[in-house]
Amino acid sequence: MQTIQWQNVFGSDLKAIKQHRYCTEYHIENHSGTGKLIQYEVLPGIQLTYNLFKLDIRPNNNITNINIIEINHCMEGRYECEFKKNDYIYLNEGDLSISNFSCKKISSNFPLGYFKGISIIIYLDEAVISIKKMKLPDSIDLYKLMKKLCVKGHCFILRARNEIKHIFSQPYPVKEELYRTYHQIKVIELLLFLSSNNISEQNQERPYYSRKQVTITKQIRDHLITHMNKRITIEEMSKKYGIGATTLKSCFKGIYGTTIGNYMHYHRIKTAAFMLQNSYDSIAVIAAKVGYENQSKFAAAFKKITGMCPSEYRKSKHKQPVVHKKVSFI
């Protein structure tokens, strides 16, 4: 059976830590964080991988084969792909993407610093034989499916919807010896869904962002985080970095999945929670550091998100403060 050799993708950062007949578990660690991949051989020609990453950058394989289909489902976090035309596209939570390996990726990233999802790789020549042996309905035609969804090397995207959620959910416990059968059922269910007559008409057009737009937007995000003690306006950032305010707002939401205001609001509270647990600073000082001049407004905002006022949160952690610990924004 053909398989993606993850060692060739991640290099020495990847280690196989557990292996069974149809399953291999990998651990990855690099400068940006850690990750875990659990790969199952579902059928000859079809492999399914559970991905759990707490890092920023995912290396890419260099395979260019039009007869390999890649299906990605984003369960948590966000998934960024840069294609050969220097265009970027993003998967939200619940989204599904289908492409073949002729759709060359330049890079892949996780803008929120974490990602949980499922990847299915289908080697058409081998998978077609496997499916025929299962005597399944003729409605599953993998070559026809690729021709319908992978048009002109573009990535086909379905927004989050109940059918996708149902297919990728696991509403009941499955014994380890039944994993392969369970995954076979789920993959066939997905292929039947994708083979429905009108699925190609439901491709959700997502805005593609240029490399320049993405680079500037990420620089602005870093600037806002570095200076979170200040209240900086979108107009100020737009002027400073030479990008239109409307474009900035659209691109930021495309990358990070929320508005600039919401992103910074949650980031401030998240950082304040870390400081409350790991520093001796007073609540007033922490409030100022994360951009709140009014301590009462800070306490109200903190409680709305955490369910506790700052003093209660600090007491609940029962942890000796660490003075010079670096903040990790994951």
Results as ranks from 00 to 15, higher is better:
residue 150 C to A: 00
residue 71 I to L: 01
residue 146 M to V: 02
residue 300 A to F: 05
residue 119 S to W: 00
residue 63 I to Y: 10
residue 23 C to I: 07
residue 277 Q to L: 06
residue 101 F to R: 14
residue 48 L to V: 10
residue 155 C to F: 07
residue 90 Y to S: 11
residue 251 C to E: 12
residue 211 R to E: 15
residue 202 Q to A: 11
residue 69 I to N: 00
residue 79 Y to A: 04
residue 147 K to D: 11
residue 128 V to S: 14
residue 283 I to R: 02
residue 314 R to Q: 13
residue 134 M to Q: 13
residue 262 N to P: 07
residue 29 E to N: 13
residue 55 L to Q: 14
residue 204 Q to C: 08
residue 122 I to W: 01
residue 201 E to G: 09
residue 166 H to I: 12
residue 149 L to E: 00
residue 91 L to Q: 05
residue 84 K to D: 06
residue 126 E to L: 07
residue 66 I to V: 04
residue 237 M to R: 00
residue 40 Y to M: 05
residue 143 Y to T: 14
residue 94 G to H: 01
residue 284 A to W: 06
residue 180 R to M: 10
residue 121 I to F: 03
residue 226 T to S: 14
residue 141 D to R: 08
residue 328 S to L: 15
residue 73 H to F: 08
residue 150 C to F: 01
residue 194 L to H: 00
residue 226 T to G: 11
residue 19 Q to H: 02
residue 298 F to S: 00
residue 131 I to G: 11
residue 293 E to Y: 06
residue 7 Q to P: 09
residue 149 L to D: 00
residue 288 A to K: 07
residue 255 I to R: 11
residue 57 I to A: 11
residue 84 K to R: 14
residue 200 S to H: 05
residue 25 E to L: 03
residue 319 K to Q: 15
residue 316 S to E: 06
residue 243 I to N: 12
residue 176 E to M: 02
residue 72 N to H: 09
residue 180 R to F: 07
residue 57 I to W: 13
residue 46 I to E: 09
residue 123 Y to C: 07
residue 307 G to D: 05
residue 306 T to S: 03
residue 24 T to V: 11
residue 184 Q to Y: 11
residue 269 I to A: 03
residue 105 K to L: 15
residue 36 K to D: 04
residue 133 K to F: 14
residue 4 I to N: 09
residue 25 E to Q: 10
residue 243 I to W: 05
residue 159 R to I: 04
residue 98 I to M: 02
residue 26 Y to N: 07
residue 164 I to Y: 03
